[in-house]
Amino acid sequence: MIDIHTHILPMIDDGPATIQESIEMCRIAVNEGIKKMIATPHVQSKVDNEGTIFEKIDILNKALKQEGLDLVIFPGAELHLNDQLLHADVLKESRMLTLNGNKKYILLEFSFQWVPPEAEQIIFALKTMGFTPILPHLERNFRVQNNLVF
């Protein structure tokens, strides 16, 4: 099984506070049958700390190997929906803004309070550029909770 949306990297946004906590979370994932994970920290369309994220992925993968855990962490990002994403070069040049750097799938986050009025147009534009948006945890979005047809 593959988990495509995790905040597994230590000391980055919603992730655990320590590498030991990351390893324990990974141990639980392995016990649930997960073999691969994509680390998806929150980022804007510009990635200032890409090197740090890749460094933490490398450290975590080495620690997992030392622990004998059959799990591999791949790079990714949870992108906040905004019109800057429409600059294809931003998505295509980054090694981590698309899931596993595949230049195809993007994890596209909405606000929890609302669905932006331009969401449909941005998603359409991204699809015409060859990207497939994946919308994480829509169940948290108040508008979706109150109106399943929006």
Results as ranks from 00 to 15, higher is better:
E21L: 06
I23P: 01
M25Q: 15
M25G: 04
C26G: 05
R27I: 02
I28K: 14
A29Q: 11
G33C: 08
I34H: 03
K35L: 11
I38K: 02
A39D: 09
T40E: 06
T40F: 01
H42L: 07
Q44Y: 12
S45F: 02
S45M: 00
K46D: 12
D48T: 12
N49S: 12
E50G: 10
T52G: 07
T52I: 14
I53E: 09
I53A: 10
I53Q: 07
I53V: 15
E55T: 08
D58Q: 14
D58N: 15
I59M: 13
I59Y: 03
L60P: 05
K62F: 01
K65M: 04
E67D: 14
E67Y: 07
G68Q: 09
L71D: 06
L71Y: 03
L71Q: 04
L71E: 07
V72A: 09
I73K: 01
F74P: 00
F74N: 09
L79W: 01
L85R: 01
L86R: 07
A88N: 05
A88Q: 11
D89H: 08
V90C: 04
V90F: 08
R95K: 15
G101T: 07
N102S: 12
N102L: 07
K103L: 09
I106S: 00
I106Q: 00
L108S: 02
F110Q: 02
F110P: 00
W114M: 10
W114E: 13
P117G: 11
E118A: 09
E120S: 11
E120N: 12
I123K: 02
F124N: 09
A125R: 12
A125G: 04
L126G: 02
M129E: 08
I134Q: 03
P136T: 08
H137V: 06
L138R: 01
E139W: 05
R140N: 08
N146R: 15
N147W: 02
N147S: 13
N147H: 13
L148G: 11
